Amino acid sequence: MRNALAFLAGALFGGGLYLSGMTDTAKVQGWLDVFGDWDPTLAFVMGGAMIPMAIAWQVSARRAAPLAGGSFPVPPKAEVGRKLVIGSVLFGMGWGLVGLCPGPVIASLGYGDPGVWIFAAAMLVGMGAAPALSRRLDSAVPAE
């Protein structure tokens, strides 16, 4: 049952990315080009994602456990630290240069575009390297 719900949620998410234009790299780069030929249409996609998520956080705060079992993840720290800034810069560079981020790249793999596959491979390498880089950052500068 849990796998069926995960499949349904993933299919809904992927379909939403496709229908909203988030898998169209030119549209995403147009959204990010605020000082050029800006395309504001993805603002509705962002709002359409944040509103239901805000509701889901409120509902989940009142529940002891998720409906499909397991436990809720621990909320992230609210502080802005060096790892958050580095990760945000790397994410933004990838998103701005290529017009893809993790969700849309997975939804775009079916297009067969070699550039999408290269981006996905680089993303997986980065995800694999992240824990070692995180440990290195933790040991390089003492925590405050």
Score class of each variant (00 low, 15 high):
72 F>S: 06
83 K>F: 04
61 A>F: 00
65 A>L: 09
53 M>S: 06
62 R>G: 04
63 R>F: 03
54 A>E: 04
87 G>W: 08
63 R>E: 12
85 V>H: 05
53 M>E: 05
62 R>N: 08
70 G>M: 13
50 M>W: 09
73 P>Y: 02
57 W>I: 09
83 K>V: 14
68 A>H: 10
83 K>A: 12
66 P>Q: 13
86 I>A: 12
72 F>V: 01
66 P>S: 11
74 V>F: 01
61 A>H: 13
77 K>M: 04
48 G>R: 02
57 W>S: 09
55 I>G: 01
80 V>D: 01
43 A>K: 03
58 Q>M: 11
52 P>M: 07
57 W>A: 10
87 G>N: 10
61 A>Q: 15
53 M>G: 03
77 K>S: 15
57 W>V: 09
67 L>T: 07
56 A>L: 12
73 P>W: 04
44 F>H: 02
74 V>R: 15
78 A>F: 14
76 P>K: 04
69 G>P: 15
81 G>W: 01
75 P>M: 08
74 V>Y: 00
48 G>V: 02
50 M>G: 09
73 P>C: 03
62 R>Y: 04
81 G>N: 15
72 F>M: 07
59 V>G: 06
86 I>T: 07
84 L>H: 00
87 G>S: 07
48 G>S: 01
67 L>A: 10
71 S>K: 13
73 P>R: 06
83 K>G: 00
64 A>R: 10
71 S>N: 09
64 A>Y: 00
71 S>D: 11
57 W>Y: 14
50 M>R: 06
45 V>Q: 07
55 I>R: 00
63 R>P: 08
53 M>Q: 07
65 A>Q: 14
82 R>N: 02
72 F>N: 09
77 K>W: 01
73 P>G: 04
83 K>H: 07
85 V>F: 02
79 E>L: 00
67 L>I: 08
56 A>P: 07
81 G>T: 04
75 P>V: 04
45 V>E: 05
71 S>G: 14
63 R>Q: 14
71 S>W: 06
72 F>E: 07
71 S>V: 14
72 F>W: 15
77 K>G: 15
49 A>P: 00
66 P>L: 10
50 M>P: 06
45 V>A: 14
80 V>A: 02
56 A>E: 13
60 S>N: 13
72 F>C: 08
83 K>I: 11
84 L>E: 11
85 V>D: 05
84 L>T: 01
85 V>I: 11
65 A>V: 12
76 P>T: 01
43 A>L: 13
85 V>S: 05
70 G>V: 10
44 F>A: 13
45 V>P: 04
51 I>D: 03
86 I>V: 15
51 I>L: 12
63 R>T: 01
47 G>T: 01
85 V>N: 05
76 P>H: 02
73 P>E: 03
83 K>E: 13
54 A>P: 09
42 L>V: 00
75 P>Y: 06
45 V>K: 14
66 P>Y: 15
56 A>H: 09
70 G>F: 10
54 A>L: 14
54 A>S: 13
76 P>C: 00
44 F>M: 09
56 A>Y: 11
65 A>P: 06
61 A>I: 05
55 I>F: 10
43 A>H: 05
70 G>L: 12
76 P>Q: 03
